[in-house]
């Protein structure tokens, strides 16, 4: 066991260099963020993850983000336990009808300024489970229940996809990008 302790203390970090923020996500966010909101956050984002119906695939990749390899916290991004402490709701779906009210309540508990990220194809309304009687609005897109500021596609999105999207959110919140006009939202 001593070896593991010593290695943990003295080995160089395993965390890898972060990716560039996703430019498409930056475009989408530039429209979503008001100037006023940007200065509130500084370089810190608190995320409350909500599984609103996922197959658990997206959750595994979100967990990977928290590992030493991706080391999300070095960017000032951390997961919090309560929506009341959160700036961002990171929602995976498809949003089921059974979970829609809980998602709405989590959103209502999140103090503004707040952002909603729909993570994964299902949350973006184009997953394999749609259409179904059991999904909010039949397709389970997060927009059917609460407004969405950023879409991260993938089945599941890789940790790098997620990190690119979240870094874009951080940059946008930091006021480092100007609002762009006329970029259609990236959905479907």
């Amino acid at each position: 066991m001593l070896r593991l302790y010593l290695r943990s203390l003295f080995a160089p970090p395993v965390s890898e260099p972060p990716p560039e923020p996703d430019p498409r996500a930056l475009d989408e966010l530039a429209r979503a963020l008001a100037q006023r909101a940007r200065h509130r956050l500084g370089r810190s984002l608190a995320i409350r993850q909500v599984d609103a119906g996922s197959c658990n695939g997206c959750e595994l990749e979100i967990h990977a983000l928290d590992s030493a390899v991706y080391a999300l916290e070095r960017h000032g991004i951390r997961f919090v336990a309560s929506p009341k402490h959160a700036d961002v709701l990171l929602v995976t779906g498809p949003v089921t009808r059974n979970m829609a009210f809980a998602l709405q309540r989590a959103f209502d508990c999140t103090p503004p300024p707040r952002w909603v990220v729909a993570a994964g194809d299902c949350a973006c309304g184009c997953g394999v489970f749609a259409p179904s009687y059991a999904l909010a609005g039949e397709d389970g897109a997060v927009e059917r229940v609460i407004p969405v500021d950023l879409h991260i596609r993938g089945c599941p999105p890789t940790p790098l996809d997620l990190l690119r999207g979240l870094l874009a959110l951080l940059e946008a919140a930091d006021g480092r990008i100007a609002p762009a006009a006329g970029v259609p939202p990236r959905t479907g």
Partner: peptide, 23 residues
Amino acid sequence: LGWVHKGIEARLRGTGIDDAARI
């Protein structure tokens, strides 16, 4: 339990083998 009920069994009815495999 039942919160993440997506209606998978109903969704599978009538699908071809390839689509069903993905679900």
